[in-house]
Amino acid sequence: MLSVKGLRANVGENEILKGLDLEVGPGEIHAIMGPNGSGKSTFSHVLSGREGYEVTAGSVTFEGRNLLELEPEERAHLGVFLAFQYPVELPGVNNTYFLKAALNSIRKARGESELDAVSFLRLIKEKLKILHLDDSLLKRAVNAGFSGGEKKRNEIFQMALLEPKLAILDETDSGLDIDALRVVADGVNALRSPERSMIVVTHYQRLLDYIEPDRVHVLAKGRIIRSGGKELALELEEKGYGWVLEQGQAA
């Protein structure tokens, strides 16, 4: 589904990704762990098409398409979704209006009919129910004045609505207390499906207590230096990144 080969990317003069390889199959959940500065967020941003990154080598193929040549919205149309580490506040932009514009933009790009107000609200209610959310956030401006937990829940809610094929969760656990983390993880788990792959980017193992990955990768200095099953996360938790970094250098 997603194939990343030898990806190199710069921010300004600095090379952040230095030959990253990753293969994600349909329905798989991959965790990417790594210390600060390892390139985790850069990788998420390059996948979603954020400006400010220069890809110098390698390829990213998503369902046979070269993702790197597409605009951010085109990637979204194909089914790529980024849950932001820091969801952006949009004062004055109503959340319901935003969600409808997003969903209908994607439907339109796929040649599907746009949803009218009634069908849209029905769909929204259904998704809220799955995620056990109340509808108070619909009336507010997108993320404006939201607490950290509300922002992350709003990200997962968007994901539920837009039904991506590939969801990238960029440090979704950052800034959340344990209760908020559980709510968000429950939401993510409710959206697991054989057609939906996920890349869970995180610094800490604790998120993976709630979202169980199929594969765990350790990213350091712009490369994946080690991959394994979910037990790798536990080992990292126990021994720290120092251990795997040393091993990586030894190898």
Binding site: G49, V88, L90, A102
Partner: peptide, 28 residues
């Protein structure tokens, strides 16, 4: 740019995203 990217990452075209942000600015 972050606001624009946020909207575009949700599938919203750049022109519509710009319009939404302008209307958001004017909403008050």
């Amino acid at each position: 740019p972050e606001k624009l990217f946020y909207l575009r990452s949700r599938g919203i075209s750049a022109p519509l995203a710009r319009r939404m942000l302008c209307l958001g600015f004017a909403e008050e």
